[in-house]
């Protein structure tokens, strides 16, 4: 089995590492247009990884294609993978590009190509947490996702832009547009992240979650940001982003009912975003290679994996899922 990992950034390199350690593949091709990134990656990865200094969407000779390249390059890579009938896993981050990738659904269906869209921290793990939370309720009326932190520089850039663009949330049968950086809400993430001010942002979670759960009447996504983040979002990034951000978190809140009683389920994960995204992406790729996912079209994680099993597997990879059980008063 061969896997092609497109993008040797913070997520792509970790995906390659995890695929190697799982023994799901015999060989990995790690491709990037940056020789510096490939140089760093080749030092940390073993001989079973072949690095390629190639354009992102060329020669995809592999059993699975993992698209973990920066925003703006993913759509072309997915188009090419579909045309070559390669099973594809797309980490997916930016809102507009995710929508464009979802628009390739017809091509994927006609050619019978399995394509999994959104396999990062959020979207990705957030979608699986939502699917798991839904199993704890009889009826789900609202889904609210929030995230804090970024992975590598490409992820940091997407987050920077997301605060200055319109956010899309699903509200009573229509898309509800809100200005990025508005709608402050103080939300509690699992420790050590704790409470953070979160704001509307151009995130792709609501699009993927509405695609998976069209019956849910309200879906929103917010992002933790500081006053400086919100102010500078309207300008180009003045300082280059960090190689990899610190610890981040996601939080998924589901509102609905069980046994006729209104109930809220709050699930969360605190982890380094790039590491969590890589774990979700690598596990999805393994599921595709081992044919644990029976897919011949484009779909999202929330619809194709059994959430309990998937989260149990992630727990084995040291991703800790937590549930909020309410305040405990200590006097």
């Amino acid at each position: 089995m061969r896997a092609l990992v497109i993008g040797a950034g913070a997520v792509g390199t970790k995906v390659a590492q995890q695929l190697l350690s799982s023994n799901a593949v015999d060989k990995i091709l790690l491709r990037d247009i940056s020789p510096e990134k490939l140089g760093v990656a080749s030092k940390t990865l073993g001989s079973r990884v072949e690095v390629e200094h190639f354009p992102f969407s060329q020669n995809m000779d592999a059993d699975v294609v993992v698209v973990a390249s920066p925003r703006g390059t993913q759509l072309e890579a997915v188009k090419k993978a579909i045309s070559l009938r390669r099973p594809t896993v797309v980490v997916s981050d930016g809102l507009s590009e995710t929508v464009s990738i979802l628009n390739l659904e017809k091509e994927a269906f006609e050619l019978g190509v399995p394509v999994v869209v959104g396999t990062g921290f959020a979207p990705g793990l957030s979608c699986v947490l939502t699917a798991y939370g839904k199993t704890l309720l009889e009826q789900t009326e609202e889904i609210h996702v929030s995230k804090m932190g970024t992975g590598g520089p490409a992820c940091a850039l997407v987050h920077h832009r997301a605060l200055s663009r319109m956010s899309f949330g699903w509200r009573e049968d229509k898309w509800d547009k809100r200005l990025g950086g508005s709608g402050r809400e103080l939300l509690w993430f699992p420790e050590p992240v704790g409470p953070q001010d979160c704001y509307h942002a151009a995130l792709s979670d609501p699009v993927l979650l509405h695609n998976a759960f069209p019956e849910v009447s309200r879906i929103s996504a917010k992002m933790a940001a500081t006053r400086r983040d919100r102010f500078t979002a309207f300008f180009p990034m003045l300082t280059p982003p960090h190689d990899e951000g610190g610890i981040g978190a996601i939080r998924v809140e589901l509102r609905g009912s069980k046994n006729g009683v209104q109930e809220n389920i709050v699930l969360g994960v605190s982890e380094h975003p790039a590491l969590a995204a890589a774990s979700v992406t690598a596990l999805t790729s393994e599921y595709l290679l081992k044919q644990k996912i029976n897919l011949n079209h484009m779909s999202t994680l929330a619809l194709i994996v059994e959430p309990s099993e998937f989260l149990s597997e992630l727990t084995k990879r040291s991703i800790v899922v937590e549930i909020f059980e309410g305040d405990k008063t200590t006097v």
Binding site: P307, L311, T315, I323, F324, T329, V331
Partner: peptide, 17 residues
Amino acid sequence: VEKRTGGWKKISNFGNN
């Protein structure tokens, strides 16, 4: 006047929650 602590609990068994 109470001191409150967050009530996050790790999920270890996804089948029994």
